[in-house]
Design a protein around this nucleic acid. Structure first.
Lengths: 241, 241
DNA sequence: ACAAAAGTGTTTAACCTACACCCATGT
DNA sequence: ACATGGGTGTAGGTTAAACACTTTTGT
C-alpha cells in the first residue's frame, strides 16, 4: 500500500440541498394554489461562475466531522434551529468537478425545513422551486436532482416527512406536503391509513378551526418520531415467520 | 464563506467491503452444507493495530475519483476482473476514527464477486465469513456491518444479486446465494416468481445435468442486466394511474 | 420401484388504490 | 337548506408467503 505519496492541495467540502415546501405567490399564500418543493440557494458574487446559484456549503475543518461542518456552513445562510433533518448523501469526487486548484471533493447532504418555518435569509440567498431552477454552479444541479430523488424515495418507505411538516397538522396539509415533494397526487384517505398502519402518525385529539367558507373542522396529527425510521423495510423477500 | 483557512494534512481514503458467497469447509465444498457470505480482509503486519484485519483500500490520488481509487487499491488484493459490482456507500469522517496525523476520511464502497470465481489472494489476505469476523482494525467492523445491511436491503428491491451469481445458474443455486447473503431462508418457488415478474431473470432454455444421486435436471437462468437496476421502486404511495 | 431434485398450482393473507358515501360546520 | 371541506366504508386488484403436489431423472 502506497499511502504517503505526495499530493496537491485538496479541500473537502460539505454541500447541502435544503428543501422546504413553500407557497410561491400571493394567491397561494392566501390559501389558494398549490405549494411547491423549494431548495435553498445563494448567488455567487465572485468568479468563478459569478451570478450562478450554489448550494450552501464550504470546507471541512480539522476538528469537525462532515455533519458538523454541514451544520456550521448552513448557519451562515439559514437559522439552523429550523433544520429538522440532515443526512448524508453521495460523494462527488471527479478531479475536474470544479475548476482548481485546489481540488474539491464534495460530500453532499439532504436537509429539511418544516412547512411553517420562514427563516430570515441573507441578501444573496433565496428559495427556488425545484421545477424552475436557475443557472446552477458547477455540478450543483446534479446534486439537487439526486437529493430530490432520494427524498421522494424515502417518503415512500420511511417517516422522513416529519422533516417537512409542522409539529401539528391536518391530513390535507400533510397531503399537500406529500404532493409537492413527490410531484404527483396522493389520496388523503389512503395516506392517512398507510401512515397510521405503520404507526408513523398519531392523532392529537384536537381539531383545527375551519376556513372562511365553513367545512368540518380537521383533526390534527403529529409524527410519533422526530428521527428517521425505516417503516417498510422489505418490499419483498421478507424473513420467514 | 471561509474557504482558504489553513488546515493540517488530511488523507482521503477509499475502503471497500468486497463480498462473496463461499463454501467454508471440505464437506461444504463437496456439495453438502451451506455456503456463507464472506468479506475480503487483509491482516496488518505493522503498527498501528498490528495483527488486526482491515478492509482493502488506501489514499486517493490527485488524478482519480474515488471509484477509480477503490478499484486501483483492490487490484493489489484481488483480481479486479472478477469484480462484478462496485458502488459507493457512506463516508466516515470522525476526526478521531483512526490515530493520526494525518487525519483520514474514509469513503466506503460495496464490492461483489460472483459465487464461482476463486481469485488468487496475496499471503496477508483472506476471505472471512461475516458471521465470524476476526478482530477488526479501527472502525472497519462498523463498515462491514453497514455494507451487509445495504446489501441485504438491495437484494429486496434491486437486481443486485447479479453481482453474487455466476453467469448461468439453477434456481437452487440462486436460492443458496440469497439465503447466505440475507441470513435467513428463502423459498425457491417464490424467489423464482418474484424475480421473473420483475423481469430480473431470464431462462436460458438449457439445463444442468443432475447430481450424482439423480434428480430432475435444473433449468438454467441468467440475469437480464449486469448493471444495478431498481426493480420495486415504490413500497407505497405509487404515482396514480 | 424408489429416492432425489426440480417445478407447478393453490390457498391465504396483507396491503394498497380508487371511489362512493356520510359527517360537521359556516352562511 | 346548501355549499364546503373532512372522514369512513368498501370493493377490487396486486403481490407474495406457505405448502402440498406433480414431474423428471439416476440407481
Amino acid at each position: 500500500m502506497i499511502e504517503n505519496m505526495p499530493h496537491g492541495s485538496t479541500v473537502h467540502e460539505a454541500l447541502t440541498a435544503v428543501f422546504q415546501v413553500r407557497h410561491f405567490n400571493a394567491a397561494a399564500a392566501a390559501g389558494n394554489g398549490h405549494p411547491e418543493l423549494a431548495v435553498l440557494l445563494w448567488q455567487r458574487a465572485l468568479e468563478p461562475q459569478r451570478g450562478t446559484w450554489s448550494l450552501p456549503g464550504g470546507a471541512l475543518r480539522d476538528d469537525e466531522d462532515l455533519t458538523a461542518s454541514a451544520r456550521r456552513q448552513l448557519a451562515e445562510k439559514v437559522d439552523v434551529r429550523k433544520l429538522s433533518h440532515l443526512e448524508q448523501l453521495s460523494v462527488f469526487s471527479d478531479p475536474n468537478r470544479v475548476p482548481g486548484p485546489p481540488r474539491r471533493i464534495a460530500s453532499t447532504f439532504l436537509g429539511l425545513v418544516p412547512l411553517t418555518a420562514d427563516p430570515q435569509l441573507p441578501e444573496d440567498t433565496r428559495w427556488h422551486p425545484v421545477s424552475r431552477l436557475p443557472q446552477m454552479s458547477f455540478d450543483h444541479g446534479i446534486v439537487v436532482d439526486y437529493a430530490r430523488t432520494r427524498l421522494a424515495a424515502k417518503l415512500s418507505y420511511t417517516n422522513i416527512a416529519f422533516g417537512l411538516s409542522p409539529a401539528e397538522f391536518s391530513m390535507s396539509t400533510l397531503r399537500e406536503i406529500y404532493c409537492a415533494a413527490l410531484g404527483y397526487d396522493v389520496d388523503t384517505t389512503n395516506l392517512q391509513r398507510v401512515l397510521t398502519r405503520r404507526k408513523v402518525l398519531r392523532p392529537t385529539g384536537t381539531t383545527a378551526s375551519p376556513g372562511p367558507y365553513g367545512g368540518r373542522p380537521a383533526a390534527l396529527y403529529r409524527f410519533t418520531d422526530t428521527e428517521l425510521r425505516v417503516t417498510d423495510e422489505f418490499a419483498a423477500l421478507r424473513p420467514p415467520g
